[in-house]
Simulated assay, not measured.
Amino acid sequence: MKYVAVLFLITIMVSCNSSNSNNNTPLEEPIDFSEINEVEINEYLTANDLVSLKTSTGLHYIIKNQGDGAKPTTSSNVTVAYKGYFLDGSVFDQSTDGLSIGLNQVIAGWTEGIPLFNEGGNGILLVPAHLGYGSFDYSTIPGGSVLVFDIGLISVN
């Protein structure tokens, strides 16, 4: 009898949770920050006297040194030294010793941007929100943020 009561309680809890998901509360929709991010990136470039190239997806990049080693693909495993910061200069992450990771396991801005360099190359990626973490907060990164990365491609593994 005790098990029947527990089973009954679990059934009620599941039913209540199911009905809550069907109420008329709208889910939060993602916001397209593309136009806002483009303005922010251009203002950053102007303020810092930088000139970037731009891909068809909206990724801005500056190649300081192309490098002369192997060129990664979007599925390569690479070792990258980087500093990630916001347009105001606040650093949110960095690895000076290098991070080894697959380019199919990172934000779209890295998957697209790192293969623009050869091994030994370095530069800057300016990643709009839709190629980063999107319009929702992620850890310490506010939704809609442009992310700036100083990148050094140490090796293609």
Rank of each mutant, 00 (worst) to 15 (best):
G152V: 08
G69C: 12
F86K: 01
L9Y: 14
V80F: 14
T111W: 01
S155R: 05
S155V: 05
L27E: 09
Y133G: 11
L131S: 04
S76H: 13
F136M: 10
G134D: 10
V78D: 15
G120Q: 10
T73K: 10
L131W: 02
P142G: 02
I36Y: 02
I107F: 05
N122V: 03
G113N: 01
H60P: 05
Q66T: 14
G69M: 10
G67E: 13
S76L: 07
K64M: 08
T57E: 02
A47I: 00
L103A: 10
L125H: 00
G144K: 01
S90Q: 08
V6C: 07
S135K: 07
N118S: 12
Q105E: 15
E43G: 05
N122H: 14
V39E: 11
G113D: 10
N20V: 15
V148A: 03
M13E: 15
G134S: 05
N77R: 08
T74E: 15
Y44M: 01
V91S: 02
P142Q: 09
N42M: 03
P142R: 04
G98R: 04
N24T: 11
L59I: 04
L27I: 12
V14F: 09
L9W: 08
N118R: 04
L99Q: 07
D150P: 08
D150H: 12
